[in-house]
Design a protein around this nucleic acid. Structure first.
Lengths: 194, 194
DNA sequence: GAGGGAAGTGGACAGCGTGTCCACTTCCCT
DNA sequence: AGGGAAGTGGACACGCTGTCCACTTCCCTC
């Protein structure tokens, strides 16, 4: 059952991985992420298709690799950061509605900064199958339960829906500012869990 | 400027249109709508690709044609039906939160019945560009304004997000019943506009 | 510091879906 | 009946996907 020591990554593999991530980050940022092809990435990274597919089965997995560290940082703050994003020290020192509003604000900031990566990683139905989504869902369901709401899991999915990356992009392209989006979400948070 | 009389549709064209809609409806219903190709539809309808493309530029437009009558029926009820879905006879006879909850319930019913068509018609970002979405948005924004909420347009997008077809399918496949979905949405409606 | 086996590489290839094009057919008005 | 327009259908070129395998590079061992 014990795994052997993880085999070290070879130097050429590491080099190519770095080239892939750098190239993909550039490509995602400079246009519609959904239009970036695996071939584009391979060519921009200066490697062959086979090499690219060896490590990443599709575009989404590359975007996820790039997005990962940012999402982890937010997850860390939710679990162990200062209120209102993180939990208070005692139990119930922060109202669930306030924590949800703070989470919304942080997600809006993350979307504003990395919308290209999120669109590359979680378009459409794939969103619900990512580990990140499972985490947000758990967090929001926890807050809903704390607020005494019935069926917190279902409510959590519904409260996460307005953070769908396609909607965010649509609103931003229609000229809606991040502040207005966050304000609407705060109203939702306080109305539902307040 | 005056258009001439609209040229009658030729008999063969009408025949083929009916065949296309029948075949597409069948195909959409019996599997993943996103996996249905234009070629599948043409073959199932017994016509050529060129004929299909002449009338419908893509799969979504076919699904929309099939969905259209159902959506129109709901729109009619929203505008002129009996409360709480439609407006009361006097002003303010029905609370906006109740009208929103009724709208949610009707949409859940529509999704439950026609999820295959909705997934075929409004997947991902395309959703926000359909006429139907514009209508729902107008309706919900109207209710939000009636309830005295600030920035009703932004709130409307956020209140419509939990009706995204991908989320609905995900919840249904996870075993969540339509009743539970509707109950969660009703809580959202009363929390936000109540 | 050579040698060898494993890990990694890259480009060719087959398969599929799209959307267009145009020679042919069918329709409907006169 | 006849003619012109509307409609038809299949061939075609293109782009993307994912796999495959002969070749190269690496790194561990002696």
């Amino acid at each position: 059952m014990a795994d052997g020591p993880p085999p070290r990554e070879r130097a050429d593999a590491a080099r190519n991985r770095a080239k892939v991530l750098a190239a993909a980050g550039r490509l995602f940022a400079e246009g519609d992420p959904a239009a970036v092809t695996m071939d584009d990435i391979a060519r921009a990274a200066g490697i062959g298709r086979g090499t690219l597919y060896r490590r990443y089965p599709d575009r989404a997995s590359i975007a996820r690799a790039l997005l990962d560290e940012h999402e982890r940082a937010l997850q860390e703050r939710l679990l162990r950061g200062a209120p209102p994003l993180g939990p208070g020290d005692g139990a119930g020192t922060v109202a669930p509605a306030d924590r949800l509003a703070a989470f919304y604000a942080a997600m809006v900031e993350l979307l504003e900064t990395h919308i290209h990566l999120v669109l590359g990683a979680e378009t459409g139905a794939a969103r619900y199958r990512t580990g990140a989504y499972a985490f947000w869902r758990l967090h929001v369901a926890h807050l809903a339960r704390e607020a005494g709401r019935p069926d917190p899991e279902v409510l959590a999915d519904q409260l996460l829906a307005p953070l769908a990356p396609e909607l965010f992009r649509h609103q931003r392209e229609a000229g809606v500012t991040p502040a207005r989006i966050a304000a609407g979400l705060a109203a939702l948070a306080h109305g539902t869990l307040g």
